[in-house]
Computed example of a mutant assay.
Amino acid sequence: MNNFVLEFKNERELYMAYMPFLKQGGLFVKTPEQFELGDEIHLTVTLPGQLESVELNGSVCWITPHGAQNGTEPGVGVAFVNDENNVRNQIESNLGRMLNSKEPTYTM
């Protein structure tokens, strides 16, 4: 299983990576590595303003390949599989009103 460490310094970075349209939430991970849909990923996530990270497992549900037409950086969207630490709720609390923004993200 691949492991990624994600440290979000501010709400803008978190907003760009968060995938609220997934039932249990998810995050976009910038990476040049190639993955297949369904690959298992382990995430260690530090949210803005927090000193301790949380860990959770997910699966690849979105792939942005190298050379995507819209110029988006390559990477994968990781859907949360076990969110025992309620990372989705923590993210949505951090983002608050930003969740209603029309500003593009890494995935939409």
Rank of each mutant, 00 (worst) to 15 (best):
N2H: 12
F4L: 04
F4P: 01
F4R: 02
V5K: 14
L6R: 05
L6E: 06
E7Q: 12
E7K: 13
F8H: 07
F8V: 06
K9F: 04
K9E: 14
N10T: 09
E11S: 13
R12T: 13
R12D: 13
E13H: 10
Y15C: 00
M16K: 13
M16Y: 08
M16P: 01
A17S: 15
Y18W: 15
M19S: 00
F21P: 00
L22H: 12
K23Y: 13
K23R: 15
K23G: 01
Q24T: 15
Q24M: 14
Q24E: 15
G25H: 06
G26D: 02
G26R: 10
L27P: 01
L27S: 02
L27N: 02
L27H: 02
F28Y: 15
F28A: 12
F28C: 10
V29F: 08
K30Y: 03
T31C: 11
P32C: 04
P32D: 15
E33W: 11
E33H: 13
E33M: 15
Q34M: 13
Q34C: 08
F35M: 08
F35D: 06
E36R: 15
E36A: 14
E36C: 10
L37D: 07
G38P: 02
G38T: 08
D39L: 06
D39F: 06
E40A: 10
E40G: 02
L43E: 03
L43V: 03
L43H: 01
T44G: 03
T44K: 11
V45L: 07
T46N: 03
T46S: 08
L47H: 03
P48Q: 07
P48K: 06
P48C: 08
G49D: 03
Q50L: 06
S53I: 02
S53M: 04
V54K: 07
E55P: 00
E55N: 09
N57T: 15
G58I: 11
C61S: 15
W62N: 07
W62G: 00
W62S: 06
I63S: 06
P65C: 09
H66G: 01
H66N: 04
G67R: 08
A68D: 09
A68Q: 07
Q69L: 12
G71D: 03
T72H: 05
E73T: 10
P74Q: 07
G75A: 10
G75F: 09
G75T: 05
V76M: 03
V76L: 04
G77H: 04
G77F: 01
V78G: 05
V78M: 07
V78K: 06
V78L: 05
A79R: 14
F80V: 11
F80H: 07
F80I: 08
V81T: 14
N82M: 05
N82D: 14
D83A: 06
D83N: 15
E84F: 05
N85I: 01
N85P: 00
N85Y: 07
N86W: 02
N86T: 03
V87N: 00
R88D: 04
N89F: 09
Q90W: 07
I91D: 01
E92M: 10
E92G: 09
S93K: 14
N94K: 15
N94P: 00
L95C: 01
L95D: 00
G96L: 10
G96A: 12
G96R: 10
G96Y: 09
G96D: 10
G96P: 04
M98D: 02
N100Q: 13
N100H: 13
N100P: 01
S101Y: 05
S101G: 03
E103P: 00
T105D: 03
T107I: 12
M108V: 10
M108S: 10
M108F: 11
M108P: 03
